[in-house]
Design a protein around this nucleic acid. Structure first.
Length: 113
DNA sequence: ACCGTGACTGACG
DNA sequence: ACGTCAGCCACGG
């Protein structure tokens, strides 16, 4: 990613993928990073989500860590907001952990190619 | 330009 | 089955 314009679009690329996550499903920071080709920049994806804070159209609650834990819940308006949104879509969350994570997990690599 | 800081991850002990 | 470490990369001070 040497083209500064592509670099500038990195956040937008992250947002584009996040917006494609179907309701009731969730993916991980690393999966998004891998799909975008920068497999080792999972942290930066998290950073992008932090910046996405102001964008209501982005379902940030559908992005969790690789184990299906709500590691970003503290960054929502209320710590329970992330869990509430997920449960509103039928996702079961117990102790910050998405239940049946293997079934809920949405992999952009296989879903989008 | 340098350094500290993460909503991360995989590897080690 | 834990806790730690070290890469990782974009950003702000």
């Amino acid at each position: 990613m040497k083209d500064p314009r592509l670099q500038h679009d990195f956040f937008e690329q992250v947002y584009a993928v996040v917006k494609l996550i179907p309701p009731g499903r969730a993916t991980s920071y690393g999966a998004i990073a891998k799909y975008l080709g920068t497999g080792s920049s999972a942290r930066t994806v998290g950073w992008a989500m932090n910046a996405a804070h102001s964008k209501p159209e982005i379902p940030a609650h559908r992005v969790v860590n690789r184990l299906g834990m709500l590691s970003g819940k503290m960054h929502f308006g209320h710590p329970m907001e992330m869990q509430n949104r997920l449960e509103a879509e039928g996702v079961v969350v117990v102790d910050d952990q998405i239940q049946q994570w293997e079934r809920v997990f949405w992999d952009p690599m296989t879903a989008l190619g």
